[in-house]
């Protein structure tokens, strides 16, 4: 858990998170097109996620 290096992973393991983020991004891209207000907010959150993850993975303290 503390090491960035894992055992050899399967394709399913490698793409589990990317797939989830891809689906959320798609939801975010479409959501603001569908409506205003809440739909916009869903869009902001879903598309903010990759940005936050990028920052988190680069800046997280060493364990």
């Amino acid at each position: 858990m503390t090491n960035a290096r894992a055992r050899r992973q399967t394709l399913a393991q490698i793409f589990r998170w990317p797939l989830a983020i891809g689906v959320l991004s798609t939801v975010g891209l479409i959501s603001a097109l569908v409506g205003d207000g809440l739909w916009d907010a869903v869009s902001w959150l879903a598309l903010l996620l990759p940005i936050l993850l990028y920052g988190w993975f680069l800046l997280r303290p060493r364990r």
Partner: peptide
């Protein structure tokens, strides 16, 4: 991306 990440966790830096 897949072969590059075989031995790395998601988000490894």
């Amino acid at each position: 991306y897949a072969p590059s990440m075989r031995k790395l966790r998601f988000g490894a830096y």
